[in-house]
Write a protein that binds this DNA or RNA. Structure first.
Lengths: 215, 215
DNA sequence: CGGGTGCGACTGTGATCACATAGCGTCCAT
DNA sequence: ATGGACGCTATGTGATCACAGTCGCACCCG
């Protein structure tokens, strides 16, 4: 019996398309309101309409894309109320995830977080919005993975996905840029094992970041 | 220019299939681990495989169905850890929704909640698990609709959806049954405008209901 | 020069088909 | 009688096609 060295070699076409689009959307590579076509997506990924349609359906279900009344697909342009809601959801769930990760946060994890934080600073200095968003999310995901709570992490990533195009719009016009300020608080609270401080730091990081998103 | 009297007359086939399956799953009409086939679903709804596939993909994206490695589709059989996580998510988000609904809760809303609560008691007396689950969710949704927070409500409904088959298994073996106890606390807190009491009552209702789900 | 109208290309939808694969029952050999 | 191998059937996947609706653009008329 062969052991699968690659757990997912799935040559499945719709999965490739799904992952590709999801990554582009979550990392803010597509501005809000951008129109997409099934045939265009299919051509981009070298597949026919069928897998493109499945990937789009899935992303619509996750709120990463929206369908107009006539079925045209585009990235959503969020209202301020929607952004506030999604920020509140991030605050609720991510605080819980951080809290659950705290007891399992070894020094190796903290080191990795500090490394990622350095990469974020690099992206900021290089004025690389996509790199900034990607590494910022990687910082949070690395922490939350320690919470051993896959359902909560999935839900959080869905929220990130919905905010992707909006973050694209924001960081595109973001001129003066500073390294993520509250990440140091998060790391300090992790080191100290200070749960209330960690909750406050995560909540502050999320809400401060999202406050800049409301027009 | 004609005004659409019916905002969604959508004769769209995949939407019919999606809504139908979603309702069945959320209300606990399908036990966990139940295998489904695209051609079977298509025949049930009188459509071809294509809309059935799209509906299934969407439900998989929402966690209401799972795909085996070979692509076979079935309702998920949740582990205890997963159930605990979903219960924690319900507690987090629903408490927030109730809190946001509180300032807008008129007497008319409270009356409707009491009426629904009576219907729940009827379903319990009639030993009707599906009716119980449906009206119980209707109770919560009626309250949360007042929160004016569609993204949070959607996320909560996604959690309900994931718990649907598990609730089916539970309430199928539920013999002695009592009317939902904490719903009265919720209504009392709404009447009194007591926010801490409301948060506690909702949290208790959710966690107590879900504690029975863990095997 | 401006606006309305009509045509054409484009886009999503759903059905059907060909193909690969996984399940599963059966049949044969020991 | 039991275990294993074979083959059939059922199932998901992806491509293609026909169709209907929509959007846009150009052309024509005032």
């Amino acid at each position: 019996m062969l052991i699968q060295t690659r757990p997912d070699p799935s040559p499945s076409a719709h999965d490739r398309v799904y992952r590709g689009l999801r990554s582009r959307i979550m990392h803010g590579e597509i501005p809000p309101g951008q129109a997409l076509t099934l045939r265009g997506i299919g051509k981009d990924f070298g597949v026919s309409m069928t897998p493109a349609r499945e990937a789009v359906r899935r992303l619509v279900a996750e709120g990463a894309l929206q369908l107009s009344s006539s079925g045209r697909v585009s990235t959503p342009d969020l209202s301020n109320e929607r952004i506030e809601e999604l920020a509140a959801l991030r605050a609720l769930i991510e605080v819980e995830l951080a809290s659950r990760a705290l007891p399992r946060a070894h020094m190796a994890l903290i080191d990795r977080l500090q490394t990622i934080n350095g990469t974020i600073a690099d992206a900021v200095r290089a004025h690389d919005p996509v790199g900034y968003i990607r590494t910022n999310l990687e910082f949070h995901r690395t922490l939350y993975l320690r919470a051993q709570a896959p359902a909560m992490l999935a839900m959080t990533e869905t929220v990130w996905l919905q905010l992707g195009p909006t973050m694209c719009k924001l960081y595109g016009r973001m001129r003066r840029s500073e390294a993520p300020h509250f990440h140091r608080h998060i790391i300090a609270a992790l080191k100290a094992g200070d749960e209330p401080g960690l909750r406050l730091a995560v909540r502050s990081d999320v809400t401060q970041g999202l406050r800049m998103l409301t027009t």
